[in-house]
Design a protein around this nucleic acid. Sequence first.
DNA 1: CTGTATCCAAAGGGATACTG
DNA 2: CAGTATCCCTTTGGATACAG
Lengths: 122, 122
Amino acid sequence: MTDCSQNCGGRYSYGLAATLSIIAGKWKPLILYFLLDGPKRYGELKRNVHGVSAKVLIQQLKELEADRVLARTDYKEVPPRVDYALTPLGRSLADRIVPLCTWGTENMAEMVSILAERDRLL
Amino acid sequence: MTDCSQNCGGRYSYGLAATLSIIAGKWKPLILYFLLDGPKRYGELKRNVHGVSAKVLIQQLKELEADRVLARTDYKEVPPRVDYALTPLGRSLADRIVPLCTWGTENMAEMVSILAERDRLL
DNA sequence: CTGTATCCAAAGGGATACTG
DNA sequence: CAGTATCCCTTTGGATACAG
């Protein structure tokens, strides 16, 4: 989505399109949110972001790193130890994701109902 | 993502997983954001959400409707006139999306640089 | 422990043409 | 105007095995 020419009735959503191009990816918002808790090692991410595979995790981490929202630190130890942390830019982004989590939590009853209805229709 | 068992180091992200399951879809956040401007007709959405195809637009609208975040009104006229509006639930969700747009706008210079770098690597 | 490499399946999305 | 229907293709992500 390099084309950010989104115009929403006077509201310009260039910014939204740009943001979406960064957090697009099944696990990226969860990763960013998790890292608000502090730097985490690869294994910690793997265990806590339930369902993600090794391949996809490392892939999304690399993309987030390339997009400058997180930084990878290799401690050059044996056995290997690396961790991933939010950059200042990444932290400011993750802060904007928190309201999404809050919304889901606040409306959990409705969410459960919606997801149940979705399953029912299958 | 019916499995919302996401646990982020003490931070529970059930809520985030739930929210993501609602806004997952290439154009959904843009649609929700656009509708903050007020109810819109199908054609308006089609013209303003740049790049979306007729098929995918109607598909995502139906899903958002089924998920109770927007309501469709058919005015039973000829030629046909229908519009889509945020429900109260949908409005509260769209409100949480605004910060994402703001973030992209605030960091637009960085965004441009990041997207340019991404293209360069192709 | 932190990844890589390979192969594969499915979902999601897009183009085009058509309808009430 | 507001969709539908069909076909097709790319992207995304998942499983498994292996490596430094």
